[in-house]
Design a protein around this nucleic acid. Structure first.
Lengths: 248, 248
DNA sequence: AGAGGACATTCAGGAAACCTTCAGACGGCG
DNA sequence: CGCCGTCTGAAGGTTTCCTGAATGTCCTCT
């Protein structure tokens, strides 16, 4: 699943609140595997109880809940002195005014249906900005390939690269799992929205696009000689894809 | 999330006084995240107690409170020797004479409904004038683009630029977050009033206005040659907007 | 070597995101 | 009261992206 560079500082505690079991499980599995400690709640009232008991570092909160809606839950726990940032889950067709004011403070939101990469990226961005952690670096590196999660910049050997949103998400997922083979199914599940109905063949197309932009470059050395960059994206036939600095 | 240049001197302590929980939360979340230490009070009497106890550097005070009004609160705490500046929150339809005399000393006011940028900008301006801090610079720079928070002047390559109030707030928010992509929702939440009910599409319009004034200029060099300025505002498709000196 | 399967590449249509402009509404100011 | 700058919503045009399909290439097993 979404295995990250588990190295990152202390593991954060996250509470997931959603009434749909499938969404809950999806998030729990991913986040747990990504190294977070996860608790869940299926309703607003349960959420308040769980949050006050466990004092999480971050809360993932569906705004549409059977009993108490997400905004009210937020207000209640804030009154109790809990100031953990909230990542709201909203339906795309929610009226705009409902979404208003959601991005103040450390809070943020994603619209359903989301892709896991979106959620994980947002969580990291929030935690990076919220926690005191001075050492937190918005840059992810694999060899001479870098992506900056703040500016969304991508560079190879210092040279800027332009990626489309989906290309960026795919590359980010690969880099987050450097040295680990990811199946096409895994990639589909993380980079594309969870309600995607299409074919896994689209992964091949996007790998191809990515390779052309990232691995098919010529750079000029200090001494003026041109040479191709080392390809970083490897195909593991029958298994999937992986990114890493190739072994000699 | 405003005032991101967290680097700024020592964190100031602020007391927020308002009887509406939603306003309180909005301000607490934003200011806390912006690096301020925040306490709250929901009434005039509570305000006096909290202010005398915590000795804040600045007070945000709604003039319309259920028990003791804001002016009286100010008078009382002044009698107790507390001279922290006050940022008053007033209703737009408050008669002019009520607002009169609010800006004496270090004090200032904003009208409800406000935008977060307005509040944060005023807070910074007040603290800049109040504190000894010699190193505080009212000028924000990105490349050859400068805005002066004291005079509200905007210049590009030395040339003055006229901006409308909303254009200025938008530019200021972008520059305060140089090199970080801001979503349209974030921009809406910070630059527009918190009770805004409209569409996020308005952000696109204002980005367009801003570009025409800021990024679509011709300047004349010392040697008489004309050339276009580098565009500083970048679109990150599917993510948002960002300002910075472009890479290479 | 050949067949079959897995992967790579390319392309075009449609969709989505974005840019720009404009007219009307609104409010401040003379 | 009328003018003027500003704000807002909407429309139209443009660019970029996504997706599915078609075709080509490489690997593997027999």
């Amino acid at each position: 699943m979404s295995g990250m560079n588990a190295s990152k500082g202390t593991e954060a505690k996250i509470v997931v609140v959603d009434d749909e079991p499938s969404i809950r499980e999806l998030l729990v599995a991913s986040l747990h595997f990504a190294g977070y400690e996860v608790e869940t709640a299926a309703s607003g009232s349960e959420a308040i109880e769980v949050i006050e008991r466990t004092k999480p570092d971050l809360i993932i909160l569906d705004v549409m809940l059977p009993d108490i809606d997400g905004f009210t839950v937020t207000r209640r726990i804030r009154q109790e002195g809990i100031d953990a940032p909230v990542l709201f889950l909203t339906a795309r067709d929610d009226t705009q005014d409902k979404v208003m004011g959601l991005t103040v403070g450390g809070d943020d939101y994603v619209t359903k249906p989301f892709s896991l990469e979106e959620v994980v990226a947002r969580i990291r961005a929030i935690l990076r900005r919220t926690r005191e952690h001075v050492e937190d670096d918005p840059v992810i590196r694999v060899g001479d390939l870098e992506i900056n999660e703040d500016s969304h910049d991508v560079t190879r050997a210092g040279r800027p690269i332009d990626l489309s949103p989906t290309e960026y998400k795919l590359l980010r997922y690969l880099m987050d799992n450097e040295g680990r083979v990811l199946s096409k199914a895994q990639i589909l599940d993380h980079v594309w929205q969870y309600d995607w109905g299409g074919d896994a063949a689209i992964v091949e197309s996007y790998i191809s696009y990515l390779r052309k932009k990232v691995d098919d470059l010529e750079v000029t050395d200090e001494d003026g000689t041109k040479h191709k960059v080392q390809p970083l994206i490897e195909t593991k036939r029958g298994i999937g894809y992986m990114i890493r600095v190739p072994r000699s």
